[in-house]
Amino acid sequence: MNPWELYKKYFNAWEGATATYLEHWLKSPLVLEPAGAWLSATMKLKAQADQATASFWGNIGLPTKRDQERALHKLNQLESKLLDLEEKLADLPPSTGSR
């Protein structure tokens, strides 16, 4: 067996065993709970920082990023509702006469 084939054989054996071992540990509450707590704490900190920034801009009468996002989202919703109306109009039976 050439050295590369030998390397692959040992690598595959190592990889399979390591993956099984890591899978077991990574889904353990001993790992997941602290990871979840760390992620949640980091996210709460970021949300608080964003809130403080937004309050600053809001207090001097400027729209916040969230205000702009809401406005754009409303425009997207309006577009979607117009398309709903277009669909309903297209589904109406053709008029059979005129006034």
Partner: peptide
């Protein structure tokens, strides 16, 4: 997992 707060993730990101 109990400590994963999806609301906090969405609020922040």
């Amino acid at each position: 997992s109990k400590s994963f707060d999806v609301g906090a993730v969405v609020a922040a990101t």
